[in-house]
Write a protein that binds this DNA or RNA. Structure first.
Lengths: 256, 256
DNA sequence: CCAAAAGTGTTTAAAATACACCCATGC
DNA sequence: GCATGGGTGTATTTTAAACACTTTTGG
């Protein structure tokens, strides 16, 4: 099937495999160069950047749909994803946005399920930046990481969705451990701290931070220091998966 | 339109006004006789108790749908409601449950949108027990309050939904003030404490509790004591709406 | 006047915060 | 050898938890 034909088919027949009126949008966070990043797609028809999204297959769990979308855009499997909010403003997906695209594809608004109202469920994922190979979908010309402080104009209400996801992430930081998916297996304490500081967007005390993290037991120090760095070499740590998972469920009950 | 005809019509034509595949289920909490209560409907066709639920009109905000359902079951307006989770297990609304009803109404599964898969959004509300006049809907024979510890077998996955709502409420107690909708305008500190204890399902220290609440500033003490009670008369308090609303948004940051 | 519930204050423990000193490495 | 970042410990403040006494009211 040719490129255009695939899109046209999706617009005309997509409702045969997907649930109507429902979409999933994923806010995929990564961490690189001490910056919090978000993965965005460039939507060809709108000429705007957008959150990676998709639809729910008729017999598929919503969580599975989110994971499928994540897999397609990043190549990653088995990532912990979480729904954080449902966006249901009736006018959120206005037909206007799609008007230009309509002509390009040669579909009228009346004959496509894609121009009906959509309610979208927001999902978040925290992924290892270095393991991701961003892949665009058929509706997009590019898939790239953006610094959280340099987000361009986004499609529809995607900025609102992103904002809510970030607020959610900041809140969760107090109850759930973060980092397992965002950092490489081995990491240093300053790196973990930078991650926390980036998410919270404020400075933390180096020594108190270390004490807090160590006291939760979610990390284990390795007998190995980082090589080739200026100044004193920091120790490597790794997550204690068992305690990390436990903290994920039960909550850690600490405040930064 | 007759009773049966209204139901039949809903099964055959409901999709003309409502979004397909989507429903809203409300967990409505009340407080009475020092007990946490939940409002349930008795679903005629299933012979089981169920959460009050409904569907989303084609041009309606989901939040409005939840409020509409609340209004219909309780008569209450302007209650703060909150989505807390989306339930999307593909098999959650199995056709089996409806089989008996199918025959009664004379509709085949193939011709009704009601037998398609449903994803439901859970909403919570906290309401003033004394102001509620429970009203059943056309699918139900009764609408009643149940003690949170005496919940009967529920329809579909409604017990799971209720459980999630309760867990959510307990978590929120640490960040959001609770009580404005659950208690009468004037209330005593012991009453507020009982409410917290009931939700958390554990005892709290009377003196520390009072200090915590007062320190948040969400309540104002009145120059009036409760009359006609044995033993020392407790003061009445009322919520300081401005600070209460502020705390609702910003969070209170206290732990009990 | 006594039992039961409510108001208020103090003492103690734990946790968060602030801060100071020493150590290792690359330039 | 010194500037920079990292490791570790301690004092201080703040907050939570435990606890005791007095006051009021109905019976």
């Amino acid at each position: 099937m040719s490129y255009d034909k695939e899109i046209r088919n999706h617009y005309l027949k997509g409702h045969e495999q997907y649930l109507r009126h429902l979409s999933v949008d994923c806010v995929i966070f990564g961490f690189h160069n001490n910056e919090l990043k978000v993965l965005l797609l460039n939507a060809i028809y709108a000429g705007l950047w957008a959150l990676p999204g998709g639809f729910i297959l008729k017999e598929e769990h919503m969580d599975e749909a989110a994971k499928r979308i994540l897999k397609q855009r990043t190549g990653l499997n088995d990532i912990y994803m979480q729904q954080f909010y449902v966006f249901s403003e009736p006018e959120r997906s206005s037909k206007k946005v799609n008007e230009q695209f309509l002509q390009n594809v040669g579909v009228t608004a009346e004959e496509s399920w894609m121009f009906e109202r959509f309610i979208t469920i927001g999902y978040t994922a925290l992924v290892d930046f270095s393991k991701v190979q961003p892949v665009a979908d058929v509706f997009s010309s590019a898939c790239e990481w953006f610094n959280i402080h340099e987000i361009p104009e986004l499609l529809l209400d995607h900025r609102e969705i992103l904002g809510k996801a970030l607020g959610n992430l900041q809140l969760q930081l107090n109850y759930h451990p973060v980092g397992y998916n965002l950092l490489p297996t081995k990491f240093t304490m300053p790196e973990l701290q930078k991650l926390y500081e980036t998410i919270l967007d404020r400075q933390l005390d180096r020594r108190n931070f270390q004490r807090k993290i160590v006291s939760t037991g979610i990390v284990k120090r390795l007998n190995e220091t980082k090589k080739g760095v200026a100044h004193k070499a920091p120790y490597y740590y790794k997550f204690d998966l068992r305690k990390y998972q436990k903290a994920l469920k039960g909550g850690m009950g600490f405040e930064l």
